[in-house]
Design a protein around this nucleic acid. Sequence first.
RNA 1: GCUGGAAUCGUCUAGUGGCAAUGACAAGAGACUGUAAAUCUCUCGGCUUCGGCCUUCGUAGGUUCGAGUCCUACUUCCAGCA
Length: 385
Amino acid sequence: MKVRYELIHKDKKTGARYGKVIFTAPDGTEQEYETPMFMPVGTQATVKTLSPEQVKDCGAGIILSNTYHLWLRPTPEIVEKAGGLHEFMNWHGPILTDSGGYQVFSLAHNKKKDITEEGVHFKSELDGKKLFLTPEESIRIQNMLDSDIAMSFDECPPATADKKYLKNSIERTIRWAKRGKAVFNNPNQNLFGIVQGGPYEDLRRWSAEETVKIGFDGYAVGGVANDDECKDDMYKAIEYSCPYLPEDKLRYLMGVGEPVDLLEGVKRGIDIFDCVSPTRLARHGNALVPGVRETGISGLKENRINLKNAKFTDDFSPIDEHCDCYTCKNYTRAYLHHLVKCDEQFGASLLSIHNIRFLIRLTEQMREAIKEDRYEEFVEEFYKK
RNA sequence: GCUGGAAUCGUCUAGUGGCAAUGACAAGAGACUGUAAAUCUCUCGGCUUCGGCCUUCGUAGGUUCGAGUCCUACUUCCAGCA
């Protein structure tokens, strides 16, 4: 489906954007979603432990899947044969595929020699086979997967990368973006470019301007959710990137995040987010709850409870009495504690539902606040809890 | 009743003269940001001024510089024979 973005209202004080993403299918039918928006992550063509119906019931619009993982298994050929990723996984809302750029960071980056001008060498985690992913191959795979939004193949550098490294990396990512765009050939798909540059103003600006010059259907701010990157650096990266991105295109902050980061990202002009955190935290027994908590290194973080803790054994209240999710409406902390202690996967499902709903509900509240020009107050209120 | 064998941290378990004692599970807590993550880390006898100190391997004695480990008796359990 082709995508377009409509900026409907900008918060008067902060510049936070309320808008709409409209997807048009080849037959002319449209799907419309509001932004800010949070996209649940379904790396292996599934949002872990949830059915598509459950994901939809959380209020999800777009979901994210992954080129690298589907490339290895089941292979893009099989997904194509199935009729594309939507048919294959029975998700009929929009899908965004990451390009494998994050895997350059998470799987190949400890060996810098694996990253070459031509592409990136990987060793398959499945069978040890040698793999080589190029910008062209990434786009070819995504074209075959037939996701709605394909991402450019970028290098996602570690937070520790110095300016010199970043400069070379950005240049290469820009060349890769051009190469990817050149072979991109799925008329029902959209291609997004990715801005890199660490926390540096000049690099972000330069990366953004060069990426915009190439011309994409939307833009992402990348390289902000790695290692122990501190939040200040993340927020700088956004501040230094967004002003150079066109107003009429969707802005996507990759891999983020925590409730605090959604608030701060939107404040700085971001429209959509994705993050594994709600589903991973759920599988590890944690539930997001309103408010923030202080941590040493990175500052304010998302507030949450660990249902594994013994204190929930006889706590018969819901995770959050103000939450409207299926889990909070029907189950107690004591029951969730029990499921988590027993390693029952239903516990992971129920917590995933809550955590995803929590983030999506947060974006819904942000939209309302932006529409009424009270975004700043909304953020302050959230911090106070 | 006789003859063997066994008793170790909540549970199972390693341990055949230098041990506060192995491993697993359970338990307690922490981490997690474009998913190598239903994973990983820490704690798990007591006290501690973090150098140690104290008390522990069924019970009671004994041998030894030193005993969970060897000896004796007892208690309980298991197996075989009556």
